[in-house]
């Protein structure tokens, strides 16, 4: 069966076709099983694989037809609303950070870079406490990416995972699951820094 023909089939035709392919598969497998000679076996096996490929393709085609229907009843994404919320919440977190930054720089006479580190730590600590009290997940549900992207989202993912899996013990619970989301961030951040380092070493 050529792919083009399958593409033009109706849903019912595809279903019938799938049954045919299924019935054929069983026969082919038996044929392959019965053959003793290795070269012949290879030949049959190729046929089995081709049959499986075809079945998969029909299945996908059926899925495609279905997904077109599904798309028509999908609720509208609340794009503008979510964007507004992300802007508001993300902006406010950064504004809070900026106020702390100004305060730290003024009070301790630190330069921006060191002060920024203190701001990050402050935000991490506050987020952790909010997560502990079960408040940050509510903010996150409202703010979406506005709550995920700032470092508070990073802290929240660490603390929530640690809390969630405390019941599974300190080693395989807290210890392992704490890195569920933080792990990839740290890992790929580190890899990226190595790449930057290598390039800088060679170029700079």
């Amino acid at each position: 069966m050529v792919k083009q023909k399958i593409e033009n089939c109706s849903e019912q035709e595809l279903k019938d076709l799938l049954k045919e392919v299924q019935a054929e598969h069983q026969k082919l497998v038996m044929a392959e099983a019965e053959v003793k000679e290795e070269s012949l076996r290879q030949k049959y096996h190729q046929q089995v694989l081709a049959n499986e490929e075809q079945g998969k393709y029909i299945q996908q085609q059926l899925g495609k037809l279905y997904q077109e229907k599904a798309a028509s009843v999908q609720p509208k994404a609340l794009l503008m609303r979510n964007i507004a919320r992300a802007f508001l919440v993300g902006g406010l977190i950064c504004t809070f950070g900026q106020i702390v930054l100004n305060f730290v720089m003024l009070k301790f006479g630190l330069e921006t870079r060191e002060a920024a580190g203190i701001v990050s730590v402050t935000v991490v600590v506050i987020t952790s406490i909010l997560t502990g009290f079960g408040i940050y997940d509510e903010i996150g549900r409202f703010g979406g990416a506005g709550c995920t992207v700032p470092i508070s989202g990073f802290a929240n993912s660490i603390v929530s995972a640690a809390m969630e899996f405390r019941r599974e013990g300190l080693v395989y619970g807290v210890g392992a699951k704490i890195f569920t989301i933080a792990g990839p961030v740290i890992l790929y951040g580190t890899i990226a820094s190595i790449v930057v380092g290598i390039i800088y070493y060679l170029v700079g």
Binding site: R141, A145, C147
Partner: peptide, 17 residues
């Protein structure tokens, strides 16, 4: 939630579906 999605205290936005 904890088995199939995220930790319950994680701030994740849910999709309309």
């Amino acid at each position: 939630e904890r088995q199939l999605r995220y930790p319950t205290e994680m701030g994740v936005q849910r999709t309309p579906t």
